[in-house]
């Protein structure tokens, strides 16, 4: 589907039949499938990362010890389609600093020495235990990120070759045999998910295991997840499940719990893969309020001959930060 054709489709707002909108016969296509990733039960085992690579024959992504907690694959990219973020956060944010260089969220910059600094006015007690219960303590958040399979997917909208397409399951898939490596999709994605593989030149990202879905199988990552942090299913049902889980956590007093990407009214019309987070999205390296970058493409198209250039300028992928 070309950019011009895509204009026929809705570009933002609520959309209940995403497959129908993409041209699949209403009532003929299977239900929209997706993920609910409940990070509150993620144990950071990275089985999802490995299972994804095994199943999809994704190459390794280099061997770099980053010092970003236990996260050495750093971000989603052409060769990392599931990415487990590790976020170390002091329990009392004012008393200690993390010293984790290179990762996005504001205020996380490492000090010049590269060494975490003592808190202003803080002393050894800040990180010591055995004394009073005023010691700092730490939270370690883990979250398995993945392509969001947006309701309104800008990558797909801008793809000039039709390599990116909407499947009958409502997921967004890039076909490597069609992709010409133009890279328009890369800045179009509000989450910084899709990327070009350097050695290869083409764009890659999570397919939501389209081949497995066709065979009625669960995607590899969800299948491998030992704690059911990654739940696969019909998006409508997953949304209900997520609401229940959120209510349950709130009832237990876990006020920080929130859903991310679940709302069909949000800037991308809701995600096919959405999350339960235990902190602000920024903490996990997720944009707080993503908007489909092609929201205004209709009017832009009228004014500008080459949409691609504009779209590049609109890219927000830089939020997640450079990848080596």
């Amino acid at each position: 589907m070309s950019l011009r054709e895509s204009l026929a489709r809705s570009l933002h707002g609520r959309l209940d039949d995403v497959q129908g909108d993409a041209g699949y016969e209403s009532g003929e296509h299977p239900p929209r499938m997706g993920f609910f990733t409940d990070t509150s039960v993620c144990i950071g085992c990275k089985a999802c990362e490995v299972a994804c690579k095994e199943w999809n024959a994704v190459p390794d992504d280099g061997y770099v010890l980053t010092g970003m907690s236990y996260d050495n694959t750093q971000a989603l990219g052409a060769s990392t389609w599931r990415h487990v973020a590790f976020v170390e956060k002091p329990l009392h944010p004012t008393t200690t600093d993390l010293g984790l260089p290179g990762m996005g969220p504001p205020g996380w910059d490492t000090h010049e020495s590269g060494l975490p600094q003592a808190a202003p006015g803080g002393d050894d007690q800040a990180t010591a235990s055995g004394g009073a219960s005023d010691d700092a303590g730490v939270r370690w958040l883990m979250s398995s990120d993945v392509c969001k399979h947006c309701t309104h997917a800008a990558c797909l909208d801008v793809c000039p070759t039709g390599s990116l397409f909407r499947t009958e399951f409502g997921t967004v898939v890039v076909q490597p045999d069609i992709c010409n490596g133009c890279g328009y999709c890369v800045p179009a994605c509000p989450y910084g998910v899709i990327d070009l593989r350097k050695e290869d030149g083409r764009a890659f990202k999570c397919t939501l295991c389209y081949d497995r879905l066709k065979d009625g199988e669960t995607p590899a990552c969800a299948k491998a997840c030992p704690t059911e942090s990654i739940q696969f299913g019909e998006v409508s049902e997953l949304r209900q499940r997520a609401d229940l889980r959120l209510a349950e956590l709130h009832e237990k007093g876990v006020d920080v719990a929130r859903l991310y990407g679940r709302d069909p009214e949000d800037g991308v019309g809701g995600d096919g893969a959405f999350f339960l987070l235990l902190d602000e999205p920024e903490v996990y390296g997720l944009p707080p309020d993503p908007v489909v970058t092609t929201r205004d493409i209709g009017s832009i198209w009228k004014h500008v001959g080459a949409a691609a250039g504009v779209l590049v300028a609109m890219g927000v992928a830089s939020f997640v930060g450079g990848r080596r």
């Binding site: 990362e49 590269g114 975490p116």
Partner: peptide
């Protein structure tokens, strides 16, 4: 696929010990 996830030997120390011995993160 496993090596890239933990691609090097490291030791873990507290911020206090790092200060005491002048150890730099990474």
């Amino acid at each position: 696929y496993l090596s890239e996830l933990q691609p090097g030997f490291f030791c873990e120390v507290s911020p206090r010990l790092a200060r005491e011995r002048g150890l730099e993160h990474m």
